[in-house]
Simulated assay, not measured.
Amino acid sequence: MPYVNIKVTGGIEAPSTEQKRKIIKGITDLLVQILDKNPATTFVIIEEVAMDNWGVAGKTTTERRSEN
């Protein structure tokens, strides 16, 4: 029973509903193909994290995006 947790930045960078659908289907299909897992018991969770709550190199994603 695989459980896959994907974290992405939210807000203006959040994936669309259609993109999330494709991610869930693609990950599920990949686990079926490579690990022979049952899609009925394969869980894919997408979590959106606010850009102020996601940090890299001592800065929030909001700060890093404003520098570019």
Results as ranks from 00 to 15, higher is better:
M1H: 14
M1I: 09
P2T: 06
Y3G: 04
Y3L: 15
V4C: 08
N5S: 11
K7G: 06
K7C: 10
K7R: 14
V8H: 02
T9G: 05
G10E: 03
G11W: 09
G11Q: 08
G11I: 12
I12K: 11
I12G: 11
E13S: 13
A14H: 02
A14I: 05
P15A: 08
P15E: 04
P15V: 07
S16I: 04
T17Q: 14
T17W: 02
Q19G: 05
Q19F: 05
Q19V: 06
K20Q: 12
I23M: 15
I23D: 00
I23A: 07
I23Q: 01
G26P: 01
G26I: 06
L30K: 09
L30H: 09
L30T: 15
L31P: 00
V32R: 00
V32F: 02
I34T: 14
L35N: 08
D36I: 02
T41P: 00
T41I: 10
F43E: 06
F43R: 10
F43D: 05
V44F: 00
I45C: 09
M51A: 15
D52Y: 02
D52T: 11
V56P: 00
V56D: 09
K59E: 15
K59W: 03
T60Q: 06
T61C: 07
R64G: 03
S66P: 00
S66C: 05
E67Y: 05
